[in-house]
């Protein structure tokens, strides 16, 4: 089976550049929608297991990993044939995960069990279970690969886990219900969104080597009740100049200046905007909109929504091949 997979990968790579595809997990529809990022057409929809949420691709774009939350497993699909190849042990109720830039291992947040599971993508074995705070959710890996960060929703912390010995070295308190974490590409800053707190914490390493909150970004939209400004997904442009924050039931993505950390604009999207991903060239940002069953395409340079694409029921996450 495994040799087959490798054969497939090789043949893909040998074919050269394949068309870029975006994969959207539909939490309620139990499907994965495939979108061609040139034509913005839906080209396929296939079964994704029960309650697919977290979704990501192997670094070479050949494998699609999906957290099938209600199946307590990670399902692995071929990105060309859309066939399910095998499943990986994930621990119970996997929701969000990150992959090591080398393609191995996966770091998976288990919301029900207060642990982060580290799974080897080659041997398919669980390497480690790291106890963290209550309801682990957001996961990020630092560009230098030294840290995996997990956020716990009821403990309200970002836990800094060493990728070397899987021990928690630092804990940083943030606002209520931290959902998502992501580093800038230079690794200087970590952003953590707090859904109920309504803020994004900006975390940097102090000179003594401990992370600390250096700023908090708040949101304000006239005519929208403050309690509905619930930051969830965060994406930062490669050069760090812009930060995009999905505001959930406020149906908007905030555009933030990477230097001043000022909120510059709010882009109207579909309803309950949740997770986001850039296309490989960084020109477009796709958002999943769980209550309007669509994906909004944002032109990154123009900071405008240019298209919405109907997908499956209650889209949750999105991953895009990076050619």
């Amino acid at each position: 089976m495994k040799s087959l997979v490798w054969a497939f990968c090789l043949s893909c790579c040998a074919m050269g550049a394949f068309a870029e595809k975006a994969f959207v997990s539909n939490e309620r529809g139990n499907t994965i929608t495939v979108i061609d990022t040139e034509s913005w057409q839906v080209i396929n929809e296939f079964s994704g297991g029960n309650r697919p949420r977290g979704i990501l691709l192997s670094p070479d774009g050949a494998l699609l990993y999906v957290c099938a939350s209600d199946d307590d497993t990670v399902r692995v699909f071929d990105t060309e044939t859309y066939e399910e190849l095998y499943t990986l042990p994930s621990g119970p109720d996997p929701e969000l995960f990150v992959i090591h830039p080398s393609g191995n291992p996966l770091y998976i947040a288990n919301e029900d069990d207060n642990i982060v599971t580290v799974t080897d993508t080659e041997s398919h074995a669980i390497l480690e279970e790291v106890p963290v705070g209550v309801e682990p959710e957001g996961m990020a890996i630092s560009p230098d690969m030294a840290w995996v960060v997990n956020t716990s929703e009821t403990t309200n912390m970002a836990h800094f886990i060493s990728t070397g010995d899987f021990q928690i070295k630092h804990n940083v308190l943030v606002d209520q219900r931290p959902r998502y974490a992501t580093f800038t590409s230079d690794g200087e800053r970590l952003f953590v969104s707090a859904e109920i707190g309504g803020t994004v914490s900006v975390i940097e390493m102090a000179e003594n080597g401990t992370p600390e909150v250096v700023a908090k970004i708040g949101f304000d939209v006239p005519g929208v009740l403050p309690e509905w400004l619930q930051p969830v997904g965060i994406k930062v442009t490669e050069d760090g100049s812009r930060i995009f924050v999905a505001l959930g039931p406020a149906n908007r993505v905030a555009v933030i200046d990477g230097e001043s950390l000022d909120v510059l604009d709010y882009i109207i999207t579909g309803q309950r905007v949740w997770q986001m991903a850039f296309t490989g060239d960084g020109k477009y940002l796709l958002t999943t909109n769980g209550n309007s069953n669509d994906v909004t395409v944002i032109d990154v340079a123009k900071e405008k929504a240019i298209k919405s694409i109907q997908v499956g029921e209650q889209p949750w996450g999105v991953a895009i091949q990076q050619n």
């Binding site: 803020t199 900006v202 940097e204 250096v214 700023a215 908090k216 708040g218 001043s260 950390l261 000022d262």
Partner: peptide
């Protein structure tokens, strides 16, 4: 960054 943190803290 500290300077930018101030108005945010105030607004909250």
């Amino acid at each position: 960054f500290l300077a930018t943190a101030l108005p945010v803290a105030l607004s909250m």
